Simulated scan of single mutants.
Amino acid sequence: MRKKANTDDPIPTVIPNEMSSKEFRRDWARLIQKIYEVDPLTCPKCQGSMRIISLIEELDIIERILRHLGLWDIPNHDPPQPAISRFYS
Results as ranks from 00 to 15, higher is better:
Pro79Val: 08
Thr7Val: 11
Lys34Tyr: 11
Met19Ala: 11
Asn17Cys: 14
Ser21Lys: 07
Ile32Cys: 09
Thr13Val: 10
Leu59Ser: 14
Phe24Ile: 01
Asn76Phe: 11
Lys3Met: 09
Asp27Glu: 15
Glu18Ile: 09
Ile65Gln: 10
Asp60Leu: 08
Ile65Trp: 07
Arg86Ala: 01
Glu18Tyr: 02
Tyr36Ile: 02
Ile15Met: 06
Asp60Ala: 11
Pro75Leu: 03
Met50Tyr: 10
Ile32Tyr: 11
Cys43Ile: 01
Met19Asp: 15
Gly48Ala: 12
Phe87Pro: 00
Ser89Ile: 03
Asp78Pro: 02
Pro16Phe: 07
Asp9Lys: 11
Ile53Ser: 12
Ser49Ala: 09
Asp73Gly: 05
Pro82Ser: 11
Pro75Met: 06
Gln33Tyr: 03
Thr13Ile: 12
Gln33Pro: 00
Thr7Asn: 06
Ser85Glu: 10
His68Phe: 15
Pro44Leu: 05
Lys3His: 12
Val14Trp: 05
Ile11Trp: 06
Ser49Gln: 14
Leu71Tyr: 11
Thr42Met: 07
Trp72Cys: 04
Val14Met: 06
Gln33Asp: 13
Asn76Lys: 13
Arg26Trp: 02
Thr42Val: 13
Ile84Ser: 01
Ile53Met: 12
Leu41Pro: 01
Arg64Thr: 12
Asn17Glu: 13
Glu18Cys: 04
Glu37Leu: 08
Val38Thr: 13
Ile52Glu: 10
Arg64Ile: 05
Gly48Gln: 11
Ile11Leu: 12
Gly70Ile: 04
Arg51Trp: 08
Glu57Lys: 10
Ile15Asn: 01
Ile11Gly: 00
Gln33His: 08
Pro12Tyr: 04
Lys45Leu: 12
